[in-house]
């Protein structure tokens, strides 16, 4: 069903009833899995993602194992920071067959998935202090349970939360979201409004980009734009995207703090010296 872009101008409401600068509902949880080193679950609208972090663990451990040596060949790819002194960040993304409306089987060498993996891997290794864990591997496995646009952004956010849960030292949150524009490239509408956080339907029709920033700064660490858009519109989209990232960062920060406070209350962790100085509101 094509998206009716003309309706936007009448009420300034998008197909799902949002204004141009509204995010979808973001729901996140961390430490969803007791057995994993770090885990998280994130919903951005109807996009649902789970993340499990294993490590930092000894490198090469993945190569040991089942008979025939290479049988356990690592599924994940897109290693970042593989220099000997730094930890390697291995990301594997699994798109569940039931995640989209029409079931689509994607092979393990699907180029789209490989690109997602390498983008996430390089983004996170720039934020994680990989030099603190030499000769080790941080493996991040991401499962996509349901897709409704902004997939890369959701994956980046979930991976960040899981890394925080795993206690891996990092510079700051990697917060990501998408931005688009209200009219298509062909419409060439100079006055088109930028849009924040696109859903699947909007992503299909309208130009859009994914942007991730580091914490509260304006430092962009991921910028992916795969659609055609006039240069004059790009700046507005980027500004809205960066602004959205800050909102996402605040939401994630709230989730982490809330979880931390709850764990303190439950006595799951002891209140250390360092923690007293922290502002746990």
């Amino acid at each position: 069903m094509p998206l009716d872009t003309s309706a936007y101008n009448l009420a300034l409401l998008r197909v799902d009833g949002r204004r141009w600068n509204e995010l979808r509902r973001i729901h996140a949880q961390i430490r969803t899995q007791p057995a994993a080193d770090g885990s998280s679950y994130l919903e951005m609208g109807h996009t649902k993602v789970m993340c499990v972090v294993t490590g930092p663990s000894e490198s090469g451990a993945r190569r040991v194992g089942t008979t025939g040596g290479a049988a356990a060949g690592a599924l994940g790819s897109g290693g970042g920071g593989s220099r000997d002194g730094d930890a390697e960040v291995v990301v594997s993304v699994v798109l569940a067959g039931f995640s989209s409306v029409d079931r689509k089987r994607r092979g393990r060498n699907d180029k789209g998935i490989l690109e997602l993996q390498s983008t996430i891997s390089s983004a996170l290794s720039s934020s994680l202090h990989t030099h603190l864990y030499p000769r080790s591997t941080i493996s991040i496995s991401l499962h996509v349970l349901s897709q409704d646009g902004s997939l890369l952004a959701a994956l980046l956010n979930a991976a960040t939360l899981a890394c925080i849960d795993a206690g891996i030292a990092m510079t700051d949150y990697v917060a990501a979201c998408t931005a688009g524009s209200t009219s298509t490239y062909a419409a060439n509408d100079e006055k088109a409004d930028p849009l924040l956080d696109m859903n699947h339907q909007e992503e299909q029709e309208l130009p859009g980009l994914t942007v991730a920033t580091l914490g509260q700064s304006d430092r962009v660490i991921v910028l992916v734009c795969e659609s055609r858009v006039q240069v004059s519109r790009l700046e507005g989209m980027l500004a809205v995207g960066v602004d959205g990232c800050k909102q996402v960062r605040d939401i994630m920060d709230k989730v982490v703090r809330e979880k931390g406070r709850r764990m303190l209350e439950e006595g799951a962790i002891e209140k250390g010296v360092g923690l007293e100085d922290m502002d746990l509101d």
Binding site: V52, R62, T66, A71, A72, G73, A74, L75, G76, S92, V94, A96, R108, S141
Partner: peptide
């Protein structure tokens, strides 16, 4: 689908 294993393992 089992993480760390290929689907034709």
């Amino acid at each position: 689908e089992i993480p760390g294993y290929r689907d034709d393992d």
